[in-house]
Design a protein around this nucleic acid. Structure first.
Lengths: 131, 131
DNA sequence: TCAGTAAAGAGAATCATTACTGTTAAGGAG
DNA sequence: CTCCTTAACAGTAATGATTCTCTTTACTGA
């Protein structure tokens, strides 16, 4: 019984899982603030850290100075938009594996694509010559 | 000629390129401090940022809260040791590509392995049952 | 030599994150 | 139901990496 129930903790995890973006701590805080007016940013950080240590969630990496979280702990590649900062899940055709050698202990293999997301690609006029 | 020569800037780049680790700004600062006693940490950051914008160097990512830099701008996978924080270049057998779809503009594909480096693997006793 | 301007140093400012402190309340024991 | 222990919380101070500002230094070209 070292982890008591908490409505706020549950809300944090639920929000993270209900969303396909990969929020920052502050984004979660802002989203939950209306529902929990007395929510503290520290609480969000503390619970995210606890979930991370549990393995309940994963950190995607740091984008624009902010750590981004992912409710899906399965190993899957991400796409980071260099313009708007969006982090999206992507699917890749083949399986990705890399073996650095027998002396290493590999825990995970993270693949991160960087570039412009569909929305930003459209705005830049790189694609969509039609119309 | 909007970029003048600077001994310190050159030293920063040279140090970065002479090393196979992937240093943090502070590591570079500490290393150069004996040779340039009046070196300022701000100067290191300023020049690293300039090189990054030039494309002269690349950022590997944030490890333990610190940004790590790489003098090798070619796209290649990295291994991050979760214990000692070492960042190493690794070679992988096959080519790694991922195509998220035609609406995306992909600039780069970063592959990062995480786990224990050979030294830490040895210490943990995971490998090397011999001896 | 002199003007113009890039580079650097020092330190303040910023921003995300973490730690501390006092308070509240969950959950088990009686 | 009440008491007790202690996790969880809000609020806020502290931390630490990075950036910004301001002033000084020192190239460079005329």
């Amino acid at each position: 019984m070292q982890q008591r129930y908490s409505k706020k903790r549950e809300a944090i995890l639920e929000l993270l899982r209900s969303v396909d973006s990969h929020p920052s701590a502050d984004w979660i805080y802002q989203k939950l603030k209306p529902e929990f007016p007395d929510l503290s940013l520290g609480t969000v950080y503390r619970n995210l850290a606890a979930f991370r240590d549990d393995g309940t969630l994963a950190t995607v990496g740091v984008v624009a100075g902010q750590d981004r979280f992912d409710g899906n702990t399965a190993e899957h590649p991400h796409f980071v938009c260099e313009k708007c900062g969006a982090v999206l899940d992507v699917t890749v055709p083949g399986e990705i594996t890399a073996d650095p050698g027998p002396d290493y202990t590999v825990h995970r293999c993270d693949v991160t694509l960087k570039g412009l997301c569909p929305a930003c690609t459209r705005l830049t006029g790189q694609a969509d010559p039609v119309k």
